[in-house]
Amino acid sequence: MSGLRYALWGVLPYAVLVLFAAGTVWRFRHDRFGVTTRSSQLHESRLLSVGGPLFHYGLLFVIAGHVIGLVVPERVTEDLRVPESLYRANALLVGGVAGAATVAGLAVLVARRLRVRAVRRASDRTDRALYPILATVLLAGLAATLLAPAGDYDYRLGVSVWFRSVFLLHPNVGAISGAPLLYQAHALLGLALFALWPFSRLVHAFAAPVAYPFRAYVVYRSRNVRRRPFA
C-alpha cells in the first residue's frame, strides 16, 4: 500500500512534470502551427458567447485561488494577521462562485459541443479525452470547496504542503496521503490534466496575448526575416 502511495504522490508528479515540460517543448518545436484555440465560433456563436466567457473568467479566478491556496503557506497569512475564519469564508465564497461559474460555463460548452453537429464534428480525439477529465476535476474541486465547512480538514496543512514539497524535490507523501479521498481524486485528475496539456487544445493557454496591450497597433515586418526552423 505504501508503495502505491509513493508511486502516486512521490513519482507520478515528476513523471507528469517531465511529460508536461517535454511535451510542451515538443509541441512548440514540431507543431507551432497547431497551437491555436481551434475556435468553433464560426459554427455557433450564441451559446459560446455565454459559455466561453463564463468558463474562462471563472477559470482565471480558480487559478488565482489555487495559487493562493497552494503556494502561500499558512504561516504567511497568519503573519499578515488574516483571520482563519475570513480566509475560509473568502475561499468558500469567491472559490465557490468562481468554481460554480466555471462548471456552469463548461456545462454550456460541453452541451454545445455535443448538441451542435458542426461543433461536434470539429472535435478531435484529444477533445474526447480532455472534456471528461476537465469536467470531473472541476466537479471534484468545486465539491471540495463547498464541502470544506462541513469537514475539519485544512488542505493548507496537507495538500498544499505536499504541493510545495514536490517542487522542493523532497515530496512529502504523508501530507497528501492523509487527505480526504475527494482531495486526492482532485489532485490525481489535475495531474492527468497536466499530462494531457501539451497534446490537447489546452496549449492555447500558453498563447495568451499578454504583450498585446503594449505593442503598436500596426505591425510591420520585413520579408527578409529568417524563418525559425520548424524541427
Binding site: 491555436t36 484555440t37 498563447a207 500596426v218 505591425v219 510591420y220 515586418r221 520585413s222
Partner: peptide
C-alpha cells in the same frame, strides 16, 4: 492580439503569419 498579422515593409502586402496565429478571430 498575437501580432500574427503584419504589413510587409518592402511591398505593403498584409499577411497572416500562420505559425503565430492563435485563432483569436
Amino acid at each position: 492580439p498575437s501580432g500574427a498579422l503584419y504589413k510587409r515593409i518592402e511591398d505593403g502586402i498584409v499577411l497572416v503569419d500562420q505559425d503565430r496565429c492563435r485563432g483569436w478571430r
